[in-house]
Design a protein around this nucleic acid. Sequence first.
DNA 1: GAAAGGAGTGTGACCGGTCACACGGCAGAC
DNA 2: GTCTGCCGTGTGACCGGTCACACTCCTTTC
Lengths: 348, 348
Amino acid sequence: MRPSSGRLDRRQREAVPSIRDVAATAGVSYQTVSRVLNESPRVRPDTRRLVLDAIDRLGYRPNRAARALGLGRANAVTVVTSDTMLYGYASTLRGIEEAARQTGMAVGVRVVESDRPADVRQTVEHVSDQGAGGVVVIAFDAAGAQVLRELPAGVSAVAATEAGGIPGCERTMIFLDERQAAADATRHLLSLGHRTVHHVAIPSETGRSARQVGWRDALESAGVAVPEILPVDWSPGSAYTAGRRLAADRDVTAVLCGNDDAALAVRRALYEAGRDVPGDVSVVGFDDVPGVAYWTPALTTVRMDFVGLGRACLAALLDEPGGDPRPGAAPEAPRLVVRESSAPPSRG
Amino acid sequence: MRPSSGRLDRRQREAVPSIRDVAATAGVSYQTVSRVLNESPRVRPDTRRLVLDAIDRLGYRPNRAARALGLGRANAVTVVTSDTMLYGYASTLRGIEEAARQTGMAVGVRVVESDRPADVRQTVEHVSDQGAGGVVVIAFDAAGAQVLRELPAGVSAVAATEAGGIPGCERTMIFLDERQAAADATRHLLSLGHRTVHHVAIPSETGRSARQVGWRDALESAGVAVPEILPVDWSPGSAYTAGRRLAADRDVTAVLCGNDDAALAVRRALYEAGRDVPGDVSVVGFDDVPGVAYWTPALTTVRMDFVGLGRACLAALLDEPGGDPRPGAAPEAPRLVVRESSAPPSRG
DNA sequence: GAAAGGAGTGTGACCGGTCACACGGCAGAC
DNA sequence: GTCTGCCGTGTGACCGGTCACACTCCTTTC
């Protein structure tokens, strides 16, 4: 009894009007109705009114499937993402949706669970269909990056990636470059008097994220020791474990965390070890998730304009076939927001 | 120069194979290809192999738009939501996506910015199209509820709502009933020795959310004073303001917050007023957002299975035309998770 | 006054699938 | 040996839009 077991029967179908019905009601041809719908200038104002009246009377709604079929391309965008709940992904999706809605496009979502070949292949197949329209791949991680690589040349796509893009891929890629902000954050901590800054790194496709590079650059140009990086996955638990290792080392007085969630878990580990934030250890995050301003202590972090990134991706997708990026679509540059979790070291 | 300005030209179109191309390659009719694609039993195994080989060789992908047009209905679901970033909304979307993907459906997203008539109308129009397929409305708030009410009878839809559903609406509605858990949370606080429990209420369509009802029931059956409710919106700032009011009242020793984000901001306000959590005031949230276990103090909260809710919505949508709900689709019941933010009152 | 051209409208074919029905071949029943 | 019936397959029309092109007026130009 799957609902796909049959087409709609004749009676149900006749209930929803087509342009032919509208045409008959208005006393014009279906082509004229089509012209009115597409805002062709070649229609006399009174004819147009006739048609619009009929549309209104019948409650006509254009059929996207038919239009996509006739056009050979759907007015839609499918967002490929490995997650819908993490802040960066959800915000980027939000930006894409917002921009797409404003241009009348439909928005689809497709989650790639992992970068396993089966998951990637199914996603690519789903999205290769004409009906899917354009594609925006949120490729902050390995799963998204792999989808991007395997996407057939025929489907128009852009990607939101880590800063620097994904090497060995010819697609249009848009990203927030937080290298500068990462360096700013690191210098901020050094200027407070910390001897060095430790780094808890979230997953990265390239393995050398902008956060990491900016952090390392700032340390090196300050002539300061570059501590070993602690890599974590997306789970709070893994960041907590990293936090415990940091807490055990009395030399650690400043930690730059790959995102706010990681910062939260690290802070917890420090707390359990009896190390105060920011009294004993300063903690800085990335993202500026709404709410971190209300932490105790309020989190010093780098604000990331993922919504703007999403909007820029859609703008780039629209420009794909032809020309140059439209103006005003650039997202805000990442920037350090200093709050309470960073302070001068008390000891040492 | 909008990309929708023309159909794909002939050359581009010829590049993507149709069932007719597959049929020619396999030496069968297009109908036979269609039968293979739809797993009709009426195809001889060797014919099937022939067709599958051809599909593989040509890299054929079925065209969803054409199928939707022929069928009169798309194998797709559109999720209508007023938000994509708040935990409850994002998790529900995730559950829907997951379940839809497993049945091969495409998933669309459409955000309703508000319950203003223009926003609601545009959303309803978007979703009334056959191409949108079924609809799941996430109607936790006024915007979603209004869309649900205005949805034409012809479109098949189910809704994820507040507990109790939306009165005066005949649609299938699925919800998590947190009344019991809210009462449990309140009793938990009373049993710790608190004289009463205050409530910070997040937006609710009905104005009498299950959280509120469970809380009130527990207070009344304990014969305890029912304090005035403090309503807040989704912004952390408004919960912070409510928190300041609570902090100023020395009689307040226990607060049940409508969600974890609100709990966070309330906790901040208490902190600024020099009131310790849980030493002076106990705070309990709703949702169990990943991460609140790592707060300092770890948050006592009610776990809500929004992902399961989303899955259940999709299952209900598939069952819409015909029969009874499929088994095993029920989400977990909300339940209290006691952590560190609730404790006996120190004074009084 | 006839030719040229553009504005406004209509007709036919097509997109890539679907369903309805027709048809040939072979097995089993009588 | 013919009839019946099912299996496997093919043909035609259709879904609701689109484009290409033809056609009719009406104006402008010479």
